[in-house]
Computed example of a mutant assay.
Amino acid sequence: METPLLKEMKSGLLLCIQFFTIIPYKKEIPWEKKTIQWCLLTFPLIGLIIGVIGWIQLWSLTTITPLSSLFVSFWILFYFVAISGGLHLDGWMDCSDAYFSYRDQDKRLEIMEDPRVGSFAVFSVLFLLGFRFLFIYELIQLNRALTFSAVLLIPVLSRGMVVFMLIKGKLAKDTGLAAAFQKGVSSHLFKVSALITLVIAASIGFFLHQIGVTILLLVASILFLIGFYSFCKKQFGGMNGDTLGALLEGGETFLWFVLWLLLYFVTA
Rank of each mutant, 00 (worst) to 15 (best):
S186Y: 09
I22V: 14
L146S: 01
R116D: 11
N240Y: 02
Q37N: 05
V81H: 10
L262D: 04
V258K: 00
G184H: 11
A145G: 06
S73Q: 06
I83E: 08
W75F: 15
L61I: 12
A172F: 03
F80E: 04
L261P: 02
S68D: 14
K10W: 05
F228V: 04
F236M: 05
L48G: 03
W38Q: 01
L87Q: 07
I226N: 08
S119I: 15
S124D: 06
Q182C: 09
I211D: 07
K234E: 11
H88S: 09
W38L: 04
L244P: 08
C232F: 10
L261S: 03
Y137D: 05
F236L: 08
T147L: 02
L61N: 09
F74P: 00
M9S: 12
F19N: 11
K107W: 09
L223I: 10
D94W: 13
C95R: 04
E252H: 00
F207E: 06
P30Y: 13
L45Y: 03
P30Q: 11
K183Q: 14
L247Y: 13
L262C: 07
I36M: 10
L198Q: 01
L45F: 08
L247F: 15
T35C: 08
L109G: 03
V258N: 01
F236Y: 12
C16S: 13
R103M: 06
I196A: 02
L134N: 08
L13V: 12
T65D: 13
Y229N: 12
L208T: 14
S193E: 12
F236K: 05
F71H: 08
K183C: 07
F148C: 02
W31F: 15
K234A: 10
R159K: 09
L139H: 00
T214W: 03
H188Y: 12
K34F: 04
F71R: 06
D94C: 10
L146C: 00
L61H: 12
I56W: 01
I200N: 04
W75A: 13
Y229T: 09
T214H: 04
A202S: 11
D104C: 10
A246W: 00
L126D: 03
Q235T: 13
P24Y: 06
L45A: 11
V219G: 03
S230I: 10
V122Y: 15
F164W: 02
V151L: 03
L5R: 09
I49A: 13
I167V: 12
F236W: 08
L189A: 05
S60D: 10
G85Q: 00
I29G: 04
M165Y: 03
G176Y: 00
S119H: 11
S11C: 06
V163K: 01
K183R: 15
G251S: 05
H188T: 04
G227M: 15
T3D: 12
N143V: 07
L70K: 10
C232P: 11
A220W: 00
I53R: 00
I211T: 11
I83L: 12
I215N: 09
F148I: 01
V219R: 04
Q141F: 02
T63I: 12
C16A: 14
M1G: 08
D114N: 06
G85H: 01
R103I: 02
F236D: 05
L263G: 08
M93E: 13
F181V: 00
G238D: 07
C95S: 09
P115D: 11
E110G: 02
K27E: 02
Q210K: 14
G47F: 14
W59H: 08
A268I: 10
M161F: 10
M161A: 14
L128C: 06
L87F: 13
G250D: 01
W38H: 05
S230N: 13
